[in-house]
Amino acid sequence: MKSVALEAFPRAAAKRNAVKKLRAGGRVPGVLYGREGSPRAVEVDQKALETLVHHATSETVLVDLSLQGASHLALLQEVQHHPISGSFLHVDLHAVRADEKVTVSVPVEAVGEPVGVKTGGGVLEHVMFKLKVRALPKDLPEIIHVDVTGLEVDKSIHIGEIQPAAGVEILGNPGFAVFSVAIPKAEEAKPTEAVAVEGAAPVEGGEAGAAGAKAEAGKAEGAADAKKADGKKAPEAKAKGK
């Protein structure tokens, strides 16, 4: 992973109101922490961070951070976004050493279309979107590509089957599935009803048939309720009449 330059400034604003003003002024609050030294409150330029994140494959980016004239190698450990607007709220910068291995979550991407999807009618399930890897900062992959073309129905690719690049170690249980191809369950259940009711497409008809049956049952229940209600109301009416 190549490191990208980013400039940070020391931050005095720590309370909520002050940090809000900071964001309004085009800065993003953050924190720089690591094994050496105590955590430091920093702020970075919003546009610079936007450019950095949008040009990267994932939000785990190696940055060459310049802070008060000193240079730090750091990882964008976490970027917090606003749930609706998506704007940056806070950034965690993890200071690392170039000669020390770090553990980072890296996104996994499928390459190709599985045989099970092409011919078997299955669906490719992306079970794990990120994998934890351990490597030197310079060896960290931006993304892990996994070839899934040979994957058949009801088969999976596990963590243990993924071949990492040289110098990279994939962590986690080797038996955990990352990709699998499965037959969709919802479509299997109701084709018989569908043919019997409408002769339409199995899934839609099945649902329509089921809905129709429910509706009929509902009507029957409704009628029963109405009768009950009539029975209950009658004495009241009599009482009022008196």
């Binding site: 969709p184 919802a186 479509e187 899934v203 839609e204 649902e207």
Partner: peptide
């Protein structure tokens, strides 16, 4: 139901 019918036999919801 609308999403399921639009996706037909494919995909997962």
């Amino acid at each position: 139901q609308t999403i399921t019918r639009t996706m037909k036999r494919r995909g997962k919801l």
